[in-house]
Design a binder for these strands. Structure first.
Lengths: 251, 251
DNA sequence: CGCACATTTGACGAGAATCAACTGCAGTGG
DNA sequence: CCACTGCAGTTGATTCTCGTCAAATGTGCG
């Protein structure tokens, strides 16, 4: 992992992500360029924020994936949501908000503290108007993502859950300027996918193979590409996240 | 439905609910007694807040149940969470927050506008300190409830989902001073339960019968009583919502 | 009474979990 | 350099949970 390169790529991803959520002024961009903390590296499986901890120190993800997950006493796990490069993990506008689930690194990750950026947007909402708007949009996005996860696990079949999740990840990578002809980097084991989608590891494997066989996806070198756009209907790119939630799925 | 009685019962439920979340001063109690709007009645199946609408007008539930739900294009539904008497539906501390799922009445309901109460807590956080704290706790509770719903649908078997949900509802009713020897009022059809738990109506019926046969629950007149405390471990009443989420379930 | 709706029941099949083994591969140390 | 180890992925056989279909039985209500 070349930390320097990752940091630069991650920085661009943050900028593109936020620009997709709100129009940023030069002042906003300057804050984003200067205020994030120095890159911090964590190994896979590290607890970034503990369950119940105060959400006082949010992190930008520069490289790798972070997730929130809930563990039952008997060891069953449910992944709540994912934080990709360009995402902001552990942010809440509510004072005294606490983590209702622990944040874990799914892979080796590079993070940058976002405390300064958030403080700037909150202290001077007039100056950093774009940043403040983006933070609001981010909070909304997280909630929408959790609801999508709930719908997948509650009301979709295994292959629908898989395509729906992969579609969402692909969309988010593209929006952040990541992703290419061979798709996007997905540093998850099939066990992790199962914990996200409420499926056994074995069944995840079979669903992936079926999707590969029918030409819906391609996987190589830890990257995934969505090939078959027919699995989701044509949509105007202006569709909001909520609209997508209701219109992305086929029966 | 005797609106006068329901209003009084609902008002007590609100007070008890908030007192369970934060210690209220006399000032807080006075605000709660005077500021809620006049009771509003809705029939079952009414849309209280539309998807995407600005969350500018939260409602106290005085009687009946409200839920949020997401509908897929092919008609499949997923209920996100429930709002019982004493609960506050449609509140967000974030400015410009929008409903990421529509709010619907599951039964005939009686609501009271909470705009005044919320405005009081936000305008004078120093004066209505308890109210402000309670509102923060409510936002947290809603999020924890959604995560519990996600874990149920993703990682639990049908009978576990049912007991887990009924337990949660029973706890919330008791805390609000509702509920008695014959349990609490649950104005849901089995189809609604299925939409919440990600199960078919037929299977909901069979799970309920099994639970009745094994003496875990009792149902009569639209009321449900949880009988078998062995299905959840003994817990000190001080356990937080997050702790409950991880410790309530048996394998 | 008849109608609409909720609940119940049985038979059957589909989807997914489980169990167990095997493969492929990267890292490690002799 | 190669055996050894551990982990992720793969495969087949089997079991089980749950959905679907269809019909019957309540139940409240105009």
């Amino acid at each position: 992992m070349r930390s320097t390169t990752d940091t630069a790529v991650g920085g661009r991803a943050i900028l593109r992500h936020l620009e997709a959520l709100a129009s940023l002024s030069d002042r906003d961009r300057e804050a984003l360029a200067t205020l994030p903390g120095a890159p911090v590296v964590h190994r896979a499986g590290k607890e970034i924020i503990a369950a119940g901890a105060l959400l006082g120190e949010p992190w930008f993800v520069l490289d790798g994936w972070v997730c929130r997950q809930i563990t039952l006493p008997d060891g069953r796990r449910q992944i709540v949501d994912f934080y990709l490069p360009g995402d902001l993990a552990g942010y809440s506008s509510r004072p005294e908000a606490r983590a209702s689930a622990p944040y874990l690194s799914m892979s080796d990750v590079v993070l940058a503290g976002a405390t300064g950026v958030v403080a700037c947007a909150q202290a001077q909402p007039g100056v950093c108007r774009g940043l403040a708007a983006a933070l609001r949009a981010i909070e909304n996005e997280v909630e929408v993502g959790v609801l999508a996860q709930l719908v997948r696990n509650g009301r979709m079949l295994a292959h629908e859950r898989m395509i729906h999740l992969l579609d969402e990840m692909a969309r988010r990578h593209e929006r952040a300027g990541l992703g290419s002809a061979d798709g996007f980097a997905m540093p998850l084991t099939q066990e992790n996918l199962g914990d996200a989608l409420g499926l056994s590891t074995v069944h995840v494997n079979r669903v992936l193979q079926q999707l590969r066989r029918q030409g819906a996806i391609r996987t190589a070198n830890g990257r995934v590409a969505i090939l078959d756009a027919a699995s989701s209907e044509q949509e105007p790119p202006s569709a909001s996240a909520e609209e997508r939630l209701v219109s992305t799925v086929q029966s």
